[in-house]
Nucleic acid binder design. Sequence first.
DNA 1: GCTTGACTGTCCACAGTAGACGGTGCATGC
DNA 2: GCATGCACCGTCTACTGTGGACAGTCAAGC
Lengths: 177, 177
Amino acid sequence: MNATQASLLALLDGCGGELTGGELVRLAELRIGQFWSLTRSQVYRELAALERDGLVEPGVPGPREARPVRITGPGRDRYRTWLTEQLPSDSIRIPVLLAVSFGASLDQAALRELLTASRQEHRRRLHDYEALDADLARAPDGEPWARATVSFGMHYERAVLAWFDTLPAQVRPPAPG
Amino acid sequence: MNATQASLLALLDGCGGELTGGELVRLAELRIGQFWSLTRSQVYRELAALERDGLVEPGVPGPREARPVRITGPGRDRYRTWLTEQLPSDSIRIPVLLAVSFGASLDQAALRELLTASRQEHRRRLHDYEALDADLARAPDGEPWARATVSFGMHYERAVLAWFDTLPAQVRPPAPG
DNA sequence: GCTTGACTGTCCACAGTAGACGGTGCATGC
DNA sequence: GCATGCACCGTCTACTGTGGACAGTCAAGC
């Protein structure tokens, strides 16, 4: 079991029915893509392993070679204990910080341009999260768990934007808000 | 060229001499480990590729099979343009958010425990960054580029700590400061 | 001198990433 | 009714990232 398998099981459990690999990819992107990446190749690979281990079972075949699966009882037990007991540590790679770290060796104008683009990207993401949070707030149950993860995104993006404003003047990107 | 190769070249350029694979691993952990992970296996693999491409060249062999390398002229050009022109996007995986996201299906006490441990870990990291920053501030040149990356770490950790305090009451970890 | 431990580089297995590929259903327009 | 285009299904491959085992070698301390 790994985090990708646990995520797939959790998504299958949450939907309460059957999903194909493609549907899982889309659902994962929507529900956890903000802080967890997974690709089509991975999904199909892990789905095969899950079925081999009896944690998911085939559902009724659909059109276009579609082979949906549903979670089994053991699958449900497995992901729930895994998520609270075997969580790995964070994995974070931020290329922009690589450029900042070696900034002394780089062309200052190019670095400033890079940072400006990055700042804009983070600003855009903050706006997206704010819009998403407003949507979730309108849901009947208020979606507390989903909102908690979006809240993380907003805290993060605001911190990054504040950090940009503390950079050395010669590379500091303009702050449009 | 990839980010790992560029980092190795930048470290070699910065040290102004020759380094072995092991030395590069330790130096990388110290200088960029906070936001960029790389392992021994990777370093030796990429070092072989860099030598094959003429971006580093062998230095004078040392004790214990040590085969130090130094950066070449083309190597210097390569990493500098790569860092400002071909930076990939961020890669972030935060397992704790997976648990929060599927929190509705989990045991609330176990989740709270998990979040408490995570909060403590982030608090510890913030203290480490603050101590590191104080050290860097005492350096003759003030180490502006290194301090900028540590500053990112502090902004990030403070944002995460603030986020913990916004979680639903039944899973919110205690806030000891 | 000898042991211990840290260090050298090598190797392997698996997970994550990126993208090409052939086949198939479905909607669209004729 | 039928042809076309497109979105989608699952497969596959190559490369990068991760974690850990391994054998050989030097140095420090007893």
